[in-house]
Amino acid sequence: MEGSKLKHFATSPIGRKVFTGVTGLGLTLFALAHMAGNLLYFSSDPNAYNKYGHKLAELGILLYIIEIGLVAFFVYHIFLGISIYLGKRKARPQNYEKYASAGKPSRQTLASRSMIITGLILFAFLILHILSFKYGPSVSDGYVVTVDGEEIRDLKRLMDEKFSTPLYAFGYPAVMILLAVHLRHGIWSAFQSLGATNPRLSPIIYTAGGIVAILLAIGFLVLPLSIYFSGGAA
């Protein structure tokens, strides 16, 4: 696709949805990988989590490339979400006095109606989350552990400390529930945006999307809660 055509496509109602779906699914895959990585915390090897963090950091330039890609996905996904929201406001300047969904086969839910709100909260959370962990105290601040004769960042200690405070221990799970709400509509919607035409398949995708959303949230929220309730030190 040459430049002008790509622009035509990207700014069209179809292109906007396709890119929202592609970036959304990409971010969902990232979240799944992140969640799986977190579960290493529960590994029998007490250093498994720190080793994993260290491995990621060792990727060097490759990690930067992945991070830039992630930032691009996030930024574009958010940009599209906001522009779709503003477009919808413009398309109906005056609301109905009374509005009621017609029910099934409508997929309109609290989740589908609140994508902009859950999305923006998740974005705010993401910034705080990166500041507290990625750019939180590191080796130079004494968060160090020696593994196989090598001094690496003790990320686990940071987690134990953060999640011993009620704000983190309960704030994180609350946001993860919002993530599930966002993905309840998001995953299914992405497939629909990418052209899932089979009406027989669509209920299966809808259900599967919901299950993935819930499992993802549970996978994330067990960690802060278990740290908090086990007294912060594993």
Partner: peptide, 13 residues
């Protein structure tokens, strides 16, 4: 000036 579809599927209903 129609809005973008967000796959609410209310239209089908």
């Amino acid at each position: 000036g129609f809005g973008d579809c967000s796959n609410h599927a209310e239209c089908e209903a």
